[in-house]
Nucleic acid binder design. Structure first.
Lengths: 194, 194, 194, 194
DNA sequence: AATGAATGAGTCTTCATTCAT
DNA sequence: AATGAATGAAGACTCATTCAT
């Protein structure tokens, strides 16, 4: 459908040139239509990008949910591992969305800042709560506080991977995922002995 | 000096609107001059931004060097700690530069991509080498490989902090720094017992 | 009927925004249809507006005829009076048409200028001839020339009222109608004594 | 000066095509510059036209003041006469301004309606007060009320001339001015005998 | 009878840039 | 060292119109 193609093109152009550099003309050209046609589907540039960003954030969210859902019956370390590799795998097979997502989070257009912050909060809360619960399920003797600390540490590692996703080549990135894995292993190891 | 004010304004505008949104007009207005005047100091927009980005990256680099230099006579854990807090402190007192830097690294203008990658490589190499050396100095029994792993892990944590710097409020960010510190402590603890 | 609704909307939009500001889109929206649908009824914008203006001018003309027809059996002064109040009453109960009519006469679209001038001539001639005849009927001793002068004077007053119709509030306008009436009374009074 | 030429061109284009039809391109072309250059002098189309209309209304106002000032030492009938002929003469030697003025008053752009109404009120008040005063000066036995009635009647005639200024050819218009003159003569004549 | 989808032409406006002063 | 004046190119967006359905 043309409407979806426009959305995809907007995301792609944004990933390459940012908001002001993603012109209606370039988006239209990518879709194979004329600029004027975009306005049949979206009222203006801002509304197009609101839709684009919503779709972007939502697919990222859903992807994370899917990964967690698939992994949730394994052990905690494996869940962490799955999240890391799953995220990176997804993002490597959706290069444009990744770039757009990173761009959006790292330097959001002023008009989008608040909307973005609300989304990030929802996402963070969901991820944090889910992981805390899984941690407690897998290590029943953990106190709430301990589970939270563990989760925060994992989130920090995951954010590190995120920052590196666009900076390192595939191989180096894989090494960093391994490092994250080993760190989590060591952190869990400590807990098991208590 | 006007020339420097232009540079600062360019960085500030870039931090808010990205390359295409940072117009010569807005930059001039921020400085209190007319757009035409910018061309007395810089040949064109591209050269202005090359200068701006160089200055940006260089100050970041120098700042990191300064932090490391100040901390290098303490123990390794304290060095890590200093780097984390120093970096965050610097970036919190230079909000615009931080935003610009993050924006630049996370979504570089196409024209700047290569130049940026070279810089990042230089920076990463310097940081990596410096830390490996300090690790070996402080834990003489560490093998080269072990020292490298340790450093990579620290870099991962530091990158996590970087990603979070703009997303979390000051307090939450401080907590995350603490988490990073505790992880490094645990990793070093493990080493010490070998 | 849709066709008539389109015509009415065109007139209304014209009264508010003039020819170039009365867009097919706004007209369609006012009718509650899509712009493309207008083309089922009218070949293009120009033909729509030719139809609209014709209808406008024709209803104005017919209204004047009706007023005159109703009043023609009374005395001349009363006929003048009826024309003035009748015209104003009609125009106050058809605000949009009035505005459109005034707009059209005062600043006709270039394309319509000639068509308009022909209509105005026809209308003026009809009105002038009718009034001259009525004047002679009511004041048989008047020469043709005297009757013409009297009519011209009335037309001048009527045009004054027209110019004021959109500028003054209802009350002030009524006062001006009274002034016109009194002037005509005085002019007739002069004649009667000869 | 370019800035004034732009203003004049804006008025001229407006007189021919109304607000929406007076495009920046046509205005620029008339001045002999490129559309972009207009924006060096005026922030946007709306501000250009606000300036244009202000200038238009102000020159009309000043012209009326000048005419009245020149005539004010003659008798009242001559003053009326001067105002009529002066106005028409001025407007016939400033065709574009006249058309623009008539267009503006008869069908003002929505955005300008309020601004225009205020101006008209100021102008009407000035004209009315000035004429009432002159009437009382010239006919000392006139009551205030009588002077006001007389003035209103003159204003009505003058408005009639205004409405006709664009509709009739020069000769016919001159006849109408004569009619107005004769009406005023008769009205004054009546007063003198009291 | 009406509309979804599309577009060429044109609208206002901004942008980076130039150049004489 | 700075700016007033200007512009070609491009930006977002609108408009009248078409055509298949």
């Amino acid at each position: 459908m043309t409407k979806d193609k426009i959305l995809a093109a907007a995301i792609n152009q944004y990933s390459m040139f940012n908001y002001h550099g993603a012109t209606m003309q370039k988006i239209a050209k990518e879709v194979g239509i004329k600029p004027a046609s975009i306005y049949f589907f979206y009222k203006n540039k801002e509304e197009l990008f609101i839709a684009a960003f919503q779709s972007l954030l939502q697919s990222h969210f859903e992807q994370m949910k899917r990964i967690l859902d698939e992994a949730k019956d394994r052990g905690l370390l494996e869940i962490f591992q799955s999240l890391l590799t799953g995220t990176v795998a997804y993002h490597q097979s959706h290069r444009q969305e990744t770039n757009a997502y990173i761009s959006l989070v790292a330097s959001p257009p002023a008009e989008m800042k608040q909307f973005l912050q609300e989304h990030m909060k929802t996402f963070d809360t969901w991820m944090f709560d889910s992981l805390v619960e899984l941690a407690k399920r897998d290590f029943p003797h953990l106190t709430e506080a301990e589970a939270k600390v563990l989760t925060k540490q994992f989130v920090l590692l995951m954010d590190g991977i995120f920052w590196e996703i666009n900076l390192y080549d595939e191989e180096t990135l894989q090494e960093q995922i391994d490092q994250a894995h080993q760190i989590m292993a060591k952190l869990l190891e400590g807990l098991q002995h208590e």
